[in-house]
Every structure is written in C-alpha cells, then in structure tokens.
Design a protein around this nucleic acid. Structure first.
Length: 579
RNA sequence: GCGCCCGUAGCUCAGUGGAUAGAGCAACCGCCUUCUAAGCGGUAGGUCAAAUGUUCGAAUCAUUUCGGGCGCGCCA
C-alpha cells in the first residue's frame, strides 16, 4: 500500500529511528503513534499525535524538534501544508494532485481495492453455527451464522485461505431423545395416544417427519422394538433436520465447505490420540470434582472420574473427560474433534460460540495449547444473544418447549439483507434487541436501505451522464481536475481512500461492524452533498456546459461505487442501480 | 459464591489513551418546478453508572462499589 496514511506513518517511524540514532531522543515507542484519518474536528485532512508522543522523549534540550519536524513534513511530496496545534496535534493537508492520483489507482484496482496479502495464504478453519440437529435453526444461531460468514469474507479479503466448517452433534443423549420423540409421533399416526416426557421434543416438525416415514415404510416399525428401530428413527431425524438447517442457511446465502459428524469422531481413534497426548503431558488423573456452586443440584454426589488438569493452563478448575460410568464426556469428544482439526493441518482455528458456551473457552483453549503448543492457535469469538421483541414484549424461547422462532420465520418477515446487515452491525459481544415490529415495517429505519439508496443514487447519476454522452471512459489525469473539487468532495475522497485501513482493522479484530459504520458514514456524506445541489446548482453532478467538472465528479462517484460494491459483497447484501 | 460480557442522549448503538464525546430513531422547525424527498438542513437532548487512582491528557487503563445480561453438573 502506498497511500498517504501509510506513507505518513512510515515517515514518523523513520524520523524516530534517525533521531534516536543521533541521540536526540530516548527510545520512542512507535506503536503509540496514531494517524487519525477520520477526525470529526477537521483541522486537517489527517492528523497525528506523533509530536505529543515524541516530545516526552526528547534528550537534547537545544534541539528544535518542532521546526525540524515541520520542515521534514512539508518536504514530503504528498503534503500540501502542515502545522502543530496549540495542544500538540500535527495537522496535515494532502496535495489534491496526490488524492487524484490515488483515485485513479482505486479505479484501476476495482474489486481488488482494499484487499491485502496480510494472511499470506495461511489456512484458517472457522467453525460456526454447529447447531444441534434436533430442530430447525432458530434466531439463537442467526447471529453466529452471519458473523461467521462475514468474518470468512474478511479473512479471504485479507489473503487467508479459509475453510468453513459445521460440527454436527449427532451422537449423545439429546439425539436419542430426539429419536424417541419422533417415534412417539410415528405411533401417534397409527391412532396410539402418546405422552411426551418433559425432556422430549414437542415441535410439530417431528409430525411431518413421522408422516414421511409412515408413507415410506407403513406400519413396519410399530411393533418393532429393537436397536435397529432406534437407530433408524434418530438417523432419519438428523438427516432430515440437517437438510432443513442447510436450506434455511442457504436463504441467507450461508454455505459450508465441510460438515464434521460427532459419530465419525467417536468411531475414529482420535479420542485415544487425545488421551495419549494429555497423558504424556501428565495432565490426567482420577479424582473427584467439588460440588458446583450456584443453583442446588438435587442428585449431586461426589464420584471419582477421569479429570483433565485444565486449571494448570487457562481454566479455574479441572474438568471431567470421562463420566463416572466410564463413558467419554461431551467435552472429551469435542476436544477430540479439535485435535482432528489440528491434524488436518490448519494454521489457525476460529470458533464462533454463543454466549452460553463462554464457560467452555478456558478448557478448550487449554487442550489446544497442549496440542499445538501455541496459546493462540484456537481463537474463540463469542456472540451474545439476540432478544426478539414483539409488541414491546420479549419473546422467551426454548427449543425443547417448542416455542421458538425459527430463522425461516424471521427471514420471511424481513428478508436477507436487513437480517444480515443487522446481525453484524453491532459488536458481537453486545446483546441486541431485535424488534420484529420495527423490522417488519420495512421503512427507512433500516440503515441497509440508506446505504443501498446511496449506491442507487450514485448509479443513477452515472447512467444519466452516460445518456448525455458524459463519461470517464477515456478520461485521463488532468491538471484542471483539482480546481473543481470542493471541500465536501475532498472529504468524501479521503474517506474512500481510508477504506483499505477500515477493512484491515475489521479483519484483524474480527469486527465486521466497523465496515457497516464506515459505509453509513460515507452514505451520510454523500446524501448530504447530493442535497447541496438542490440549493446550489453549481454543486450538481452533471453540468452539460462543463464536461470536465462533471467528469471530475463522476471520477469519485465511480470510486464510491467500487468501495460500496466491495463492502456489500463482504457483508453479503445485494445492491441495485435503481430502487 | 465464582467467571465472562455490558452500562455512553428518551430509545437503539458507535467511539477503547488524544482536540468541543458522535450517529440513527423518537420530538420540534424548515426544504420537492430539480440528477430518486426511500432524501437533506436546523433546534433540543450528556455528571460517558459511581468513586478513587495512573499522566501532559481518561468514556477508554487500574482498583473498588452499584446495576443488568449470560454462564458455572458426569447434560449437549
């Protein structure tokens, strides 16, 4: 990258090194140098705290730091002018010629603009959703689903290779209960009266599945009471529900590269490998866990079982790997699954978990530290719950009680774009309230429309200009361009040119909401400029009497569309030239 | 009891060491003979939960307190 922000940052680092070498300064921590390219105060195109940071470290009292710094800065080829404010900030205005240069670069890069090779083709495995196949996917998983998908895009745009993975918990007692629940629904179809236990699944979708089995096999299973029957019903249910889940996710354009099944992990030997690795590190022992605090557990009693010394690594207590009856715990299987991922030679694992799994992070990170010998090999991102609000009431949901709202239902009410946009436009660790009444209204309350509208408006100008024979197809750099750029336009151009940094930060911190903040910010500036043309005709985009001026505006309009398209593609929403 | 997350305008949220703390919605006042008014401009709205500390500088970092959420079994 060779834009003004990068160039300036590099200059400060170079300046620091040389000044330290000349013994003018003590060591300057270059990490504390910040370049502010979006300051609202607008005292300069960009500003920096470098003077404040460095002046503390000055050694030679006779050295005139301020003058030397300003002289050096003003000699930089992209700097128009610069000064240091009373309170110590460096404010710099960029030469218009340089900005125009950068705009041509942007236009040339097109969809490559902003992309980087930061990831150096390292292969990341990102596991998300992984909802148990015991029912259709619900709003509880919606946020993690979109977040995982968008973070994947961010990583791909930063030069990583990415595998999207879904872990299917198709073993264990919940699946047995699912199978039993389905079987009862099947019996019900043959006139038997059934009673579902408290822990069984009452959802009506099981009736639909039962009907299918009846259609295919008739009463074949009614009298049967065998292992075959149990397996048949639970396998059928899982297969059917997983397809529903896939279809529902497809509605949001979310697809996976790989599905891993718990049953495959169980039947492979990977859990024994895990046991050996932990045992060789002397991290396993038979012991008794303390009674957990908090809610009272009626049937608790101390029992000896196989424990993992996770408290020696990241956790605050040791965790069970085997139940007292000798079976592996869920955690053991899941840890084995992570060893399986490690064995598939990924450079990094990312998991996206719901807030209800936060307590599992220390133990899983402990396991992966032992496996990979790296503290950050596993990165776990969490997302807090999305509360659904309807008629000013919070909808309480539980899959087992069957009163949940499915992703499919919400999709039918609001559509893909607002749903995707809303899920990632807030920091994931913050819980959000999703007001169904407001979202159903489908009006300007949805910021996604605001941005799509900005895109459509920009397109409409470009198309209109094209009809008048004005375009930038064979338009080249021209010294007159800079005379036509107003301050508002320069501000928009500066924002557009900062996009690579926003994208980079967004990918680095796994925070897609930085992109939505950015695009809303640019949209505001754009709509604002648009309206100025109503009052002041000279600010309109198209002026048939002044082709060069019109072309200048088309220049950054095209740039804006490129940046918008890139962002829309990353967050996975549509854009249209007309609305 | 313990752990994690959160507390910023009436509401929903940005901002995580820098300049006078921002946006959307809601409220009030304006702007359509016009490249899309699905928009724009303006007014009003704040003890950044509280206290103490760290320093040139704190919404941001540390400690404590108060509020809210989520979690803490051999479940999955």
């Amino acid at each position: 990258m060779n834009n003004h922000i990068e160039l300036l940052h590099n200059y400060f680092i170079k300046y620091s090194r040389e000044a330290i070498d000349k013994n003018l300064f003590e060591n300057i921590n270059t990490k504390s140098i910040s370049i502010d390219f979006s300051s609202k105060s607008r005292k300069g195109d960009i500003s920096s705290n470098f003077y404040l940071v460095a002046i503390k470290k000055i050694k030679d009292k006779n050295f005139n730091f301020k003058d030397d710094l300003l002289k050096g800065l003003s000699e930089l080829f992209f700097v128009q002018d610069c000064d240091i404010s009373k309170n110590g900030f460096i404010n710099i205005n960029i030469k218009k010629e340089f900005l125009i240069e950068q705009i041509f670069y942007l236009l040339n890069e097109k969809d490559k603009f902003g992309k980087s090779n930061f990831g150096k083709a390292k292969h990341v495995n990102i596991e998300f959703v992984s909802a148990n196949p015991t029912g259709p996917i619900t709003v509880a998983h919606m946020r993690g689903a979109v977040l995982g998908d968008v973070i994947t895009s961010l990583l791909l745009n930063s030069g990583y290779k990415v595998t999207r993975e879904y872990y299917v918990n198709n073993a264990g007692s919940q699946i047995n209960i699912l199978g039993n629940s389905l079987y009862k629904r099947y019996l019900e179809l043959f006139g038997q009266s059934i009673k579902l236990n408290h822990d069984e699944y009452p959802g009506e979708y099981l009736i639909e599945i039962a009907k299918l089995i009846k259609k295919e096999d008739g009463d074949k299973w009614v009298e049967k009471n065998s292992k075959d029957k149990e397996n048949y019903f639970k396998t059928y249910a899982v297969k059917y529900l997983l397809n529903i889940i896939k279809k529902d996710l497809k509605l949001l354009n979310i697809e996976f590269d790989k599905f891993s099944f718990e049953t495959d992990i169980v039947s492979s030997n990977v859990i024994n490998d895990l046991f050996k690795i932990l045992d060789d590190s002397d991290l396993l022992y038979n012991g008794v866990l303390e009674k957990p605090k908090g809610e009272d557990i009626d049937d608790w009693e101390p029992r000896s079982q196989l424990l993992f010394k996770s408290s020696q690594i990241f956790d605050d207590q040791d965790r069970a790997l085997k139940k007292s009856n000798g079976e592996w715990t869920y955690f053991a299987n899941d840890a084995a699954y992570h060893l399986d991922k490690f064995n598939r030679k990924f450079d990094k694992l990312i998991n996206i978990w719901g807030a209800d799994h936060i307590g599992y992070i220390p133990r899983m990170k402990s396991v992966l530290k032992i496996i990979s010998n790296s503290e950050n090999y596993l990165e776990v991102l969490t997302c807090q719950i999305v509360r659904l609000i309807k008629n000013n009431k919070i909808l309480k949901m539980s899959k087992r009680e069957g009163n949940f709202v499915t992703l499919n239902e919400v999709y039918n009410q609001v559509g893909k774009d607002p749903l995707r946009y809303f899920m990632i436009s807030k920091k994931s660790e913050t819980s959000i309230d999703f007001d169904l009444n407001k979202v159903i209204e489908k009006n300007k309350d949805n910021p996604v429309f605001y941005c799509q509208y900005a895109y459509a408006r920009a397109s409409s100008v470009i198309n209109k200009a094209n009809d008048l024979g004005i375009n930038i197809n064979s338009f080249n750099k021209n010294t007159k361009i800079k005379e036509y750029l107003t301050n508002d336009e320069i501000e928009i151009i500066l924002k557009l040119l900062s996009y690579p940094y926003i994208l980079h930060q967004s990918a680095l911190k796994r925070e897609p909401h930085r992109l939505t903040n950015f695009i809303e910010d640019v949209s505001i500036s754009f709509h604002s400029f648009w309206n100025k043309g109503k009052e002041n005709e000279s600010l309109r985009f198209i002026d048939e009497k002044n082709i060069l001026k019109s072309q200048t505006k088309l220049l950054w309009l095209h740039s804006m569309r490129i940046v918008f398209e890139n962002i829309f593609n990353i967050i996975g929403i549509d854009y249209h030239e007309t609305m």
